[in-house]
Simulated scan of single mutants.
Amino acid sequence: MFKEQFNVRFYETDGLAHVSNTVVVGWFETGREPVFKLFSPELDLQNWPLILASYKVDFLSQIFYGKPVEIRTYISRIGNSSFDTYQEVWQDNIKCASGTTTMVRYDFSTEKAVAIDAHIKTQLNEHMFAVEQDS
């Protein structure tokens, strides 16, 4: 599992005094940065090897300004050329949101998906999602 913790910024709140639903998708992308580095250690955008194929977010509890959040990122599926990340937002020991994103290793020059290298699959496997007991 990868973890990223940061403070909720004021501009991320909405008129209802909680974090806007659009913010969580951005937090999840930030939480995937260590996964991106497995494919491109320098995050070289001129030779980017991934595309986002889909994502789904479930909102479980409100998230508030003034308290830090933690983004937990796991790998939940590894295919030939694609993989899924499963992510959670935690605040005050409460899971506030979860989501799954499908990423595809992609060759932009041929406009085709390509197989994920074996050594990267090994690294992805180190972060496979394990069901944790609720506390």
Results as ranks from 00 to 15, higher is better:
residue 68 P to A: 04
residue 41 P to V: 04
residue 83 F to H: 02
residue 20 S to D: 09
residue 50 L to F: 06
residue 73 T to K: 01
residue 33 E to G: 09
residue 64 F to L: 10
residue 52 L to A: 11
residue 46 Q to W: 00
residue 2 F to W: 10
residue 103 M to I: 10
residue 10 F to C: 01
residue 109 S to I: 12
residue 85 T to D: 07
residue 47 N to H: 10
residue 78 I to K: 03
residue 44 D to Q: 07
residue 89 V to A: 06
residue 54 S to A: 12
residue 74 Y to D: 06
residue 114 V to H: 04
residue 32 R to C: 04
residue 53 A to T: 09
residue 56 K to M: 11
residue 101 T to H: 07
residue 52 L to M: 14
residue 110 T to W: 07
residue 47 N to Y: 00
residue 103 M to N: 12
residue 68 P to C: 00
residue 49 P to Y: 03
residue 115 A to K: 13
residue 128 M to P: 06
residue 70 E to L: 06
residue 56 K to A: 14
residue 101 T to L: 00
residue 94 I to D: 11
residue 100 T to L: 08
residue 13 T to W: 07
residue 7 N to L: 02
residue 1 M to T: 05
residue 52 L to G: 06
residue 8 V to H: 07
residue 107 D to A: 08
residue 108 F to A: 14
residue 112 K to Q: 12
residue 98 S to H: 07
residue 81 S to C: 07
residue 74 Y to S: 05
residue 22 T to A: 14
residue 33 E to D: 15
residue 47 N to V: 01
residue 86 Y to V: 10
residue 95 K to S: 10
residue 81 S to K: 05
residue 80 N to H: 10
residue 117 D to V: 05
residue 23 V to F: 10
residue 83 F to C: 02
residue 95 K to M: 13
residue 107 D to L: 09
residue 88 E to R: 06
residue 44 D to H: 06
residue 12 E to V: 08
residue 110 T to S: 15
residue 89 V to Y: 03
residue 134 D to Y: 09
residue 63 I to C: 08
residue 117 D to K: 11
residue 128 M to G: 04
residue 84 D to Q: 09
residue 4 E to A: 15
residue 76 S to Y: 02
residue 31 G to L: 03
residue 7 N to E: 15
residue 57 V to L: 03
residue 5 Q to L: 11
residue 99 G to K: 00
residue 45 L to C: 01
residue 13 T to E: 05
residue 66 G to T: 05
residue 97 A to Y: 09
residue 105 R to N: 13
residue 29 E to A: 03
residue 78 I to F: 01
residue 132 E to R: 13
residue 33 E to A: 09
residue 75 I to D: 01
residue 5 Q to R: 14
residue 42 E to K: 13
residue 118 A to L: 15
residue 42 E to N: 11
residue 95 K to A: 09
residue 18 H to Y: 03
residue 71 I to R: 00
residue 104 V to E: 02
residue 120 I to Q: 01
